[in-house]
Amino acid sequence: MPTISMFYGIVIRMYREIGGKHNLPHIHAEYQNDEVVVSLNGDVLEGQIPNKKLKLVLAWLEIHNDELYANWQLLSNGERSFMIDPLR
């Protein structure tokens, strides 16, 4: 699963999910041993990470929404995703 960003100990990944259980654009955010799946609209689809870290992920998602949708489109077309700047 390609890593597209990392910040404050959080790893953000996005991958092509043909026939997967989440049928909408989303990211996977991992922090330590926890993982949350968040739609690009900001809805938590599955899992959990500490609330403070989730708030950072949601802020990052809002800032980089256009880039995230562009990555989703690339992956949907079988192309490579690109890195997105971390939250600073």
Rank of each mutant, 00 (worst) to 15 (best):
G78C: 07
A59L: 15
P2Q: 07
K52S: 11
E30P: 03
Y31P: 04
V36S: 04
I84M: 03
S76M: 07
I63P: 02
P2E: 05
Y8C: 06
R80F: 13
W60E: 05
E67Q: 08
I63W: 03
D85A: 13
I18H: 13
S5L: 02
E35L: 13
L75C: 00
S76A: 06
S76P: 04
H28D: 11
I84R: 04
N41S: 07
S39I: 00
P2I: 05
E30W: 15
I49D: 02
V11F: 07
V36H: 00
V57Q: 02
P50L: 10
D34R: 14
M1N: 13
N51F: 14
G19L: 04
I4N: 07
E35F: 01
I49G: 03
R80M: 10
K21Q: 15
Y69M: 08
S81E: 09
L68G: 06
R88C: 09
I63S: 05
E62R: 06
D66C: 04
L68Y: 04
G9I: 12
E79A: 12
L74M: 13
E62A: 10
L56S: 12
L87F: 11
V44S: 08
R80Y: 13
I18N: 14
V11L: 07
E46G: 08
L56F: 03
E35M: 14
G42L: 05
L24E: 15
H22I: 12
V57L: 00
K21M: 15
H26K: 03
Q32R: 15
A59F: 11
Q48P: 05
R88A: 12
N51T: 10
L24A: 11
D43W: 01
H64I: 01
L61E: 07
N33S: 13
Q48W: 15
E17S: 14
H22C: 13
I10K: 10
F7T: 04
V37Y: 12
H26Q: 05
A29D: 08
E35R: 15
E79Y: 06
R88I: 11
G47C: 09
V37K: 10
Q73V: 02
N51V: 15
G19A: 03
W72P: 11
V36C: 00
I12E: 10
N23E: 14
E67N: 08
H22R: 12
Q73G: 08
S39Q: 01
I84G: 06
H28W: 01
I84W: 02
I63G: 07
A70W: 04
L58R: 06
D43H: 13
K53G: 01
A59R: 11
E62N: 08
N51M: 12
L87K: 08
L54A: 03
